[in-house]
Every structure is written in structure tokens, then in C-alpha cells.
Amino acid sequence: MLNQELLKINNLSTSFQIDEEYYAAVDDVSLTVRENEVLAIVGESGSGKSATAFSIMGLHNRGKIEGEILLQGQDLAKLSTSEMNKIRGKDMSMIFQDPLTALNPLMEIGVQIGEVLLLHNKNMSKTERRNYAIELLGRVGIPRPERTIDQFPHELSGGMRQRVIIAIAIANQPKLLIADEPTTALDVTIQAQILDLMQELKDDLNSGVILITHDLGVVAEMADRVAVMYAGQIVEESDVESIFVNPQHPYTRSLLSSIPATDYAQDRLHVIQGIVPSLKHLPRTGCRFKERIPWIDDDAHEDHPVLHEVSEDHFVRCTCYQHFYFPDENKEDQANGVTEG
């Protein structure tokens, strides 16, 4: 049984101004996040994945946002800043990439956690806030919370700082948690701990999670659903198993076969030709991935690529996936997902 829909994004476009002209970094993106579900948005730099997250949080002060962002039915895109401020940090919150810079260096940990409590619970007393902050620090696995609360960020390790950021994010039991590359800056053993912690908290709070990452390993560990983004668009979306076991879009398949030391990779890693086009030079018509797979016939692409439902709840953009093969491929099934048996 599917959980209740929490966030529904309809045709979101976020554009930025470059030399008098607006360019869409997020282009017609539609997504759904359910309660107690992890939706991973995967892509490389320039794919628009972080811009999507920042648009939901309303943190782009210069971008132009079109489309609907419905959080429990309320359209965030239409809210004023002060209305957004009642929601940010309460109904939805964010975990950031770099725990070194995401905390104010001149403020005690307790004050930084206390701030998010103060902003959304006007009747909480100072002592109550402090006690609750200590409880939160304990909740995210900080060993001596009553000591940590009076410390400054520079006194903590990277993993501990990320725990503090998570404590801030969950302070008001948000419905929606957005994690932007939460483990990229961390060591691998710390990464594992943080991922486990996030999973646990999500179950406790019954929250929906949007996990923004470029790390397919993290996706495989965490996600329920996956949206793969390329050049501002979603190119493939499905449940996590389909994405890893039966990937369809050429970009998804290329990405999977370029990660080293996995079942997808051969001795030679797959290299995607060319580079991600800059925002200004994105091809705005036709298949955006076309120029990166020049050996595929032009006719294989659609003129106006749309998402096709290739099997239940599995969407792929453009028709080129039907004709795609790797240039050095001699066997049809090579790199075509995990080989069975």
C-alpha cells in the first residue's frame, strides 16, 4: 500500500539570469514524495538536482520559479517569504553538504539548535529549549550532549558537526527532509553512520526524504524511488530496484557503468563522451543527451522528448533508450544491469 502523498511538484522550472536572459536550470520537473519514503535525485554537477532542492526550500533569492510545489496541498511557490519562514525549519528542513561551513563559527551549538526551536515555538522557555536541544543531540548520537551544547563548531569533528546539522533539521519533527549531498564531505565509515542515522530518524518521524546526491552507492543504500536528472530534466524515474537492475535511459546506463569496482564496471570504465553543457549552452530542443551519444542514430531521438512509462511506474525520457548500445559493446547484455546468477 502506498503511503500518503506529502510533496507534489508539478512542472517546476527554475531559471537564472545570465546576461539579461533567463535560463532554466530546472526544466519542467514533476515529482512526488510520499510519507516515510526516500526519493533520491541523482545527477552530476549542472544537472539541476541542487537547484531543485533549493527551489523547494525557497532558498534561491535570484531565481525565477514557475510551476507548483505542493507540500501537503499548499503551494509553496505562491507563498511570501514570511509565510515560507513559518514552514522552513518546521514542516520541512534541510541537511547540507559541508558540515564545516554550514554552522555559524561564532555561535555555540546550543544557540544554533535553540534558534530553530525559538523561531517555531514561541512559548518554549529558554531552559526548555536548552533541555530539548540536549535531548536532540543525544538523539543524533552525540556522546556527551550536555557538554557539546556549549561548544563551538570548530571543537567538533566533521561527523559530529553533521550530526548537529541533522539535529537542527529534525528539531521540529519536519514532514519533509531535504538532504543535499549529506555525506559527500565525510569519511566512508562516518558516511555509513550518518546514512543509518537518517534512515532511523525517517522511520521515527514518518517523514518524506529527498536525497540529493551524485553517489550511486548512497542511492542504492537509501532510496525507495530514484529520479535521474540530466541537464535540468528528469531523464529516468522509477523505484530503486528498477533503476539499478533494469536501467533504461542511456545516461543512467552510462553513469552506472562508469562507477569503479562494481558489478557494472568492466576493466575499462565507461566514459561518457563530451562534457555537460553549461546552463547557457544547453540544447533547448530535442534530446539533451543526444550530443553525448553521437553514435546513436538521429532518428532514435524524439523531437520533443517526453517521459514514457516503460513499465509500471518506470519513466524514461525520449525514445533513444530503445536503440541505445555502448560503442564498445559486443554482447547485448553487457553493462545492461546486473548480470543474473
Binding site: L59, G89, K90, S93, F96, D98, T101, L103, L119, H120
Partner: peptide
């Protein structure tokens, strides 16, 4: 431009607070 300013905004801090406190 610092990241912790984004953190403050993500907490729901109004602009006046973001400027005065951070």
C-alpha cells in the same frame, strides 16, 4: 555568501534575524 547563512534561512529565520544575528 557563507553556507551558514543558508542554514539560518532554512531554519525559517526572517531576513532581519539573518542579518542581525548572523
Amino acid at each position: 555568501q557563507k553556507d551558514f547563512i543558508v542554514t539560518a534561512r532554512a531554519k525559517g529565520a526572517p531576513e532581519s534575524r539573518v542579518y542581525n544575528r548572523h
